[in-house]
Amino acid sequence: MSDEPSRPSRSRPAASPTFDRVGAPGQRRRDGLGKEALYSTAPTSAPTSQVELRCRRCDVPFGRSVVGMAKLLKPPFLWDPVRGRLWTRCPACGRRSWLQVRTGQALRVLLDRSS
């Protein structure tokens, strides 16, 4: 065994300024028509949906037009007007489930204009 005292050591290496231009993640502006368009569930990917739905079983939120919403009303379905929810087949997970129904941004804009 050597008598030479061992040198102290760091537990982690140090970052080098050479790579500062590589950049840390999270500095990018979010764009619904850019990278986030890949996600059907991104809030920014469906900015013009007239009706917003969220499945209680898979917890996936998605947007629909009024016509698309009408297509969900294939029997058997149930409508709960008190809680604003619809029992039907979820287009995201394919299972029958309660879908929370909310007015989407596009429909709100239309209603605001007409009033």
Binding site: F19, V22, G23, A24, P25, G26, R28, K35, Y39
Partner: peptide, 21 residues
Amino acid sequence: TLSHRGVAQLLDTVGDVKRLT
């Protein structure tokens, strides 16, 4: 270097996936 940059981009994507799916 370019692979280093790929990690930065992937970590950004992982952040998106954690947030959204």
